[in-house]
Design a protein around this nucleic acid. Structure first.
Lengths: 335, 335
DNA sequence: ATTCTTTATGCAAACGTGTGCATAATTTTG
DNA sequence: CAAAATTATGCACACGTTTGCATAAAGAAT
């Protein structure tokens, strides 16, 4: 049942070295014997053993991907991008999910190390932030996606969306619709993304000559519940005509809260999110947002990993990807 | 940089065999030397090489998971269930995506074979249907999730939702709300799921003494576009007061179409989907549906794989999981 | 026809583990 | 205290590849 390279060798009447070379298309082997070997291999149903090969070549052709939860559609898109490009280049994706559980996080990183993955891509901000030493121990190039930490290094690289510019574009758009009193529900404190999106928000206000009013900013939690903070903004004087939310989930939470209060979007209030999660298209009204090209980010991360795997001392610059404004029905000109 | 078991042996002043045994907690090694070895291992930053280990133990502790697209939230939930339980049992998930592309499908299966995965879980109906011979060649137990094919075997097993019962429960619920003229947008022809859900639909009608009218069934495609078929049902005489859709995506597509025509759900028409995809909760109105416990199914599949990996000749019965009716606002009593 | 290249192939070592068997060291038994 | 049983450890082989080196065969050059 188990057929190794030696069985093929016997069947083809050559040594196992010749078989190895033939099947890897070594130029040392003339086409005639290569064909004979291939025929024997096919007949016996031979499939090379990746573990044995990896042991000697010192590369697993596996790339480890650590994510918080694969069920997050945002994350899933990233993994899809990674997996696709990886598959096209003969690499396999080994999954590790952290679920923000320290034990799982450590387990995942350790397992990837034992597997001797050729590269690691991390789309779990906690892991990217907390376990850099552990990650480095893997001894393979590391690419962080949307990491919230600032450190750099020879082995750690990153792909991220341009949060500042994204926040700016979102706010700019609201300004262009005639809004002058624009609120913001920010993301969790400590996240670089929260800070950067606010920076973009302020930059846009500044460019439009609108004075910055810190009481127009409430602090959410990046989840639907945080959207309820919008109620506080409704008490503001003057009352805002538009709100830029940290992300779509927050905006959707806010939307639900507004609907409960009988406040109509976009007639009474314009709403902008961030991320362009799949939901955003289906809520009522469909949400204006800044799309994060997640699939693209996954691909870029893997691309980066590929060049680093080919030459570990290659100079690769961190990638910053621009989001895209998706104008939908949750925004309209100030009435 | 690279530290093997021999380096640890030297540092601890023992042979590499002793190190191996010590680190695997063999009872042959007394605690005192085990501690010494562990200390040396930690000091050198040793991590066992999974490939070398797998080569000799003849098991990779990897389980291959083939899915159509990880970006499908349904699939993502399954993978989450698999990954979680796998991780808890010391197994890693190796991903292979097919995207209904024959080339990718074959590549994925072949790669998993070369990797010598200990088990394969397939959540891609095409792969499960078309590549059974190739799958069997892997020589590891196979578990198919929601497979649309009927074949069984010693190596191929399955976990699936009870589509007949699901269709029955959905229709039953509409009947219980007083509906008598109930339409159905079926799924693609050739899918066992389509046929089974119809069977359940008919069974419920039958139990309620409602005659079956085949003109109340239109054929969708399982995608949002197929939801447009609902327009044909509106021409039916008498006009249906409720529609059971093959799946949520179809129902959402139908919903969009109805909204465009000014038909109000559930006032004018009740709508039931199937699957309970995440969207279903967020559309307006939230969709009544049959929940497929996808996370659970992933877990059950892996559980099955685990018992089969421990004993390849274990007798495991195929698992049929019951869906759950989630009553939301897209249905109401006949007005 | 002999020497020199070139081409085709095999030998053997290595990758990093696990493990059966043998042996050395220690303890128990009579 | 000698013999027997137990415990601790090492040796060497195996897993299935890849690859440097050596050699055999064949062709080219003189």
């Amino acid at each position: 049942m188990r057929v190794s390279i030696k069985d093929v060798a016997r069947a083809a009447g050559v040594s196992h070295s010749t078989v190895s070379r033939a099947l890897t298309h070594s130029p040392l082997i003339p086409e005639t014997t290569r064909r004979r070997v291939e025929r024997a291999a096919k007949k016996l149903g031979y499939a090379p053993n990746a573990m044995a090969r990896g042991l000697i070549t010192r590369q697993s052709r596996a790339i480890g991907v650590i994510v918080t939860s694969i069920a997050d559609p945002f994350v899933a898109e990233i993994v899809r991008g990674i997996e696709q490009l990886a598959g096209d280049n003969g690499y396999r994706v080994v999954l590790g999910t952290s679920h923000n559980d320290p034990e799982r996080e450590v387990n995942a990183v350790k397992a990837l190390r034992e597997w001797r993955v050729d590269s690691v891509i991390v789309a779990s901000s906690r892991v990217g932030a907390l376990y850099q030493p552990l990650l480095k121990d893997i001894g393979a190039p590391i690419v962080l996606i949307n990491n919230q930490n600032q450190q750099k290094g020879r082995v750690i690289h990153s792909v991220a969306v341009d949060d500042v510019r994204g926040g700016e574009v979102a706010t700019q758009y609201l300004v262009s619709l005639g809004h002058r009193v624009i609120g913001h529900i920010r993301g969790p404190v400590g996240y670089a993304a929260s800070k950067n999106r606010i920076a973009g928000y302020r930059r846009a206000l500044n460019a439009a000559g609108i004075p910055y009013d810190r009481t127009l900013i409430q602090t959410g939690d990046g989840r639907a519940e945080g959207g309820a903070q919008i109620l506080k903004l409704l008490d503001h004087d003057p009352i805002p005509t538009a709100i830029f939310c940290y992300n779509d989930i927050t905006a959707i939470g806010a939307l639900r809260e507004l609907k409960r209060r009988g406040i109509r979007v976009p007639r009474d209030l314009s709403l902008v999110g961030f991320d362009n999660i799949p939901f955003a298209l289906y809520v009522d009204p469909p949400l204006t947002t800044i799309a994060q090209p997640m699939f693209e980010m996954g691909k870029r991360a893997l691309q980066m990993a590929l060049t680093l795997m080919r030459d570990s001392r290659a100079q690769v610059a961190d990638v910053v990807i621009q989001g895209e404004l998706i104008a939908r029905a949750s925004t309209r000109v100030r009435g």
